[in-house]
Design a protein around this nucleic acid. Structure first.
Lengths: 244, 244
DNA sequence: TCTTGTAAGTGGGACTATACCACTAAGTAA
DNA sequence: TTACTTAGTGGTATAGTCCCACTTACAAGA
């Protein structure tokens, strides 16, 4: 199975594109959907100096076993944690997106509960920060074609949230149904009907009630915990329209 | 925006993976879902000699504007036609899949009506042929990791057919509702209920009735034609279970 | 202690797309 | 004319959600 020199000769005729992996890491905090962006180095040696970009970079064929491994490595470097959810979004490749030459990037998106995160300044990123995902602003001045990648990631996230249990991966270990519904509402940008929401979640059988309540100024709420080994649940129908 | 030598220096530390594009091209003919496979050259210069593989190959950074353009080029080379439907499936990359080195492939899948196709022997493929998609057989001895890629493509195709109008892209210019239903049934591997099927299609408003009937030994059937500029239609609910 | 306010959680009928199944319609072949 | 087959429809049942009003449970202040 090992390569041999004959093969190499044949390959010379094709220039190899640059190959990178980028990740859209989402969380919900302060009542908003946020994405982690890193600021590119300010020196002129790199393209798009000092601009914000999705975390990512070149594949290290020595260290990375496969594409997903590369994504997990970069994700861990930035956030310091393993992600509970990682999905491949797709790949983008053309001659223009990187001024250094024909390049292709493999894009992943990840969901991480807000409290889990410990931001680290990465080796190749002067700074990293959570940006609220707003249709207008981001989309403009990210490095490379990352604005487009981010739009695609947000679009995929929203459409999957319509009919799956994806947002549970954004919740802390214990949470109330109202908090989960809020997370759905923040991502979708609209209100959901309480009864329908609870009926769905109950029938999906995703959580165990823990024998504790969340107290506040009002009626205490039941706390739940995600069952072990619960994969993504797909609901038979998408969420309906708005409430109140 | 042009590259400069400084950048190149920095990039030397990363070996560039081999980059390819592969396509799963599907059609329905002879009452079966089929996929186009090409036989790799028999000489020992290439890996997996004489084995069957998905059509595809290296990106030509001189000719290919982007990944999808590369996929369309290879598709046209093999089938001689433009495809009515092309979608990116995902990418696979690791150190083992190609004996020549760390490689990543960008996989697309395409749907083509059976009569449209004129198979051409490609430059790098001694032969190409339609293979029925059967869970058991294919999955064993395709070149590279193409068995896995094909499984993923079939899986994606099936799951999208459950709740979209995808199979219309497999139909000839004029067709009957019974023929369309048959196409659905062949892909899904189960019978669908006639009335539900027709109600769905009617409400989707995808076709125009042409003023002609398809005659046979029995009652003639209305012929339909796909409306112009009809994108993929998504039904509010997936198809239900079997009939008779 | 009682009232007020607010969020948690539920009861029950309405609605909608599909499931199910029986029926009619329209042709060919013997 | 009858038998057979496939096209196409009518009408009720069902499932999951929608919608809205209601009850429950707590804190805070009068």
């Amino acid at each position: 199975m090992a390569g041999n020199k004959r093969h190499i000769n044949q390959l010379v005729e094709f220039e190899r594109p640059l190959t990178t992996v980028d990740i859209a890491i989402f969380t919900v905090r302060d009542q908003a959907l946020k994405v982690l962006l890193v600021q590119r180095p300010a020196g002129a040696e790199d393209p798009f100096p000092a601009q914000w970009a999705l975390p990512g970079g070149f594949i290290d064929t020595a260290k990375d076993e496969d594409l997903e491994g590369c994504a997990r490595r970069k994700l861990k470097e930035k956030t310091g944690v393993e992600t509970p959810y990682l999905e491949q979004l797709g790949s983008w490749g053309n001659a223009q997106r990187d001024p250094r030459g024909w390049s292709a990037t493999h894009v992943y998106f990840a969901l991480i509960p807000s409290e889990a995160i410990v931001l680290k300044a990465g080796a190749n990123s002067a700074d990293s920060r959570w940006f609220p995902v707003m249709e207008e602003r981001n989309g403009e001045k990210l490095a490379f074609d990352h604005a487009e990648l981010l739009r695609a990631a947000v679009s995929r996230l929203r459409s999957k949230v319509e009919y799956t249990s994806l947002p549970v991966f954004l919740m802390p270990a214990e949470f109330t149904l109202a908090e989960l519904q809020q997370t759905y509402e923040i991502i979708l940008g609209r209100r959901l009907e309480k009864k329908s929401f609870r009926t769905r979640m109950a029938s999906a059988d995703l959580f165990d009630a823990v024998p504790r309540m969340k107290s506040g100024p009002n009626r205490p709420a039941q706390l739940y915990r995600l069952k072990r080994r619960r994969p993504l649940h797909i609901f038979p129908r998408p969420f309906g329209s708005a409430e109140s």
